[in-house]
């Protein structure tokens, strides 16, 4: 099992830069009454400083679990059962909870999926920002300074300063999500994970919120992991795309390459299922269902649905390999080519 070579250089990456986040063979399991669910089943990837990485996959493929694992917020009955999560070289997995708490928001932050209910209904918006500032403060700051910081944070996401005085129920969905973004970036983290940050919003507001995230990302130079299943949105937003299937990464490639020449048959189908201009409105799903995470099929997890399935796919698990610089894939179709290239 070869881990992706993090030192590999590419046009989008200055040579010698080291990743802000390196995930190696990360595993997360949920123990349920009916068995162990391998929600994240050994994934590895690098995130460069200031990079925008998309993470897509069908519902239940483990995207949110990855996000929670990176925040070290997997709650029982789940647990991180293996692997490493190196944030600037420091592994988060073995950190004591106390230390990890201080890393959250300050080093690695999350924009929640359900912005509708992610704010404390009984507290003013500004107080919810101040809570974050206070619990990460290294020195005491006056209430006035904190208030000013909180309101400036709101301004930075395009909200008026007066919004700080309001309670969540007085805000629209888009405003709430902006407030959440303001809270998430208030401590200037190195990595922000946005788990379907716009899924509950209508299309126009979605666009605006997405623009806000991207503008902040640009201004702060923070690395973003954007989770979603909208390939179209990803195409417009991210530098690289990671495709997840049944708890594993099928493919990770720069966004241009992945649309031009998808390496994994699943990626191919995902792109193919995008509504095209000529047949607008008819969303063609991918035939078949993802496997049960409790009893995984042998060989390639995708083989029951794969149009290019070969004999070997039913027996042997394909290795996750860096086929070209910055392009990773786990598929037997490409192993031969890799072997040849390696010779």
């Amino acid at each position: 099992m070869s881990a992706p070579a993090s030192q590999a250089s590419s046009p989008t990456r200055p040579p010698g830069a080291s990743p802000v986040l390196s995930v190696r063979d990360l595993r997360v399991e949920y123990s349920t009454d009916s068995g162990v669910v391998k929600a994240v089943n050994g994934i590895s990837f690098d995130l460069m400083p200031g990079e925008k990485l998309g993470l897509v996959g069908e519902s239940g493929s483990g995207k949110s679990t990855v996000a929670l694992a990176l925040m070290r917020m997997i709650r029982p009955p789940g647990r991180i059962s293996g692997g490493q999560m190196l944030l600037q070289g420091k592994d988060l997995v073995p950190l004591p909870e106390r230390t990890m708490r201080q890393m959250r928001a300050r080093e690695i932050a999350m924009i929640p999926q359900g912005a509708m209910n992610s704010l404390n209904p009984v507290a003013r918006i500004e107080d919810q920002i101040i809570d974050t500032l206070e619990d990460h403060a290294t020195e005491r700051r006056s209430k006035k300074v904190l208030l000013d910081l909180a309101r400036s944070a709101l301004e930075s996401v395009g909200l008026r300063r007066e919004v700080g005085r309001m309670y969540p129920h007085e805000l629209s969905g888009g405003m709430k999500q902006r407030a959440c973004i303001a809270i998430a970036v208030a401590m200037r983290p190195k990595v922000v994970i946005a788990d379907e940050p716009t899924s509950a919003l209508d299309v126009v507001v979605q666009r605006q919120v997405m623009d806000t995230i991207l503008r902040l990302q640009d201004e702060l130079g923070v690395a973003v992991i954007l989770i979603g299943h909208d390939m179209g949105l990803m195409a417009q937003s991210v530098d690289r795309l990671a495709v997840m299937y049944a708890g594993k990464l099928a493919e990770v490639s720069p966004i241009r390459e992945i649309f031009a020449e998808p390496l994994h048959p699943y990626t191919d189908l995902l792109i193919d299922s995008l509504p095209k201009l000529e047949d607008r409105g008819t969303f063609r799903g991918i035939p078949g269902l993802p496997p049960s995470l409790k009893s995984l099929p042998p060989g390639c997890l995708f083989h029951p649905r794969c149009p290019k399935v070969m004999d070997i796919c039913r027996q042997e698990i394909p290795e996750y390999l860096e086929l070209r610089p910055q392009q990773f894939v786990a598929c037997h179709l490409h192993e031969e080519r890799h072997d040849r290239a390696a010779d």
């Binding site: 925040m71 929640p112 209910n117 404390n120």
Partner: peptide, 23 residues
Amino acid sequence: DFITFADAKGLRPRRIFSRYAVR
């Protein structure tokens, strides 16, 4: 969700308990 987000904010458990959950 707001407790999950409070956790993600890295708040002290005490604050989450009193001002977010109990409240």
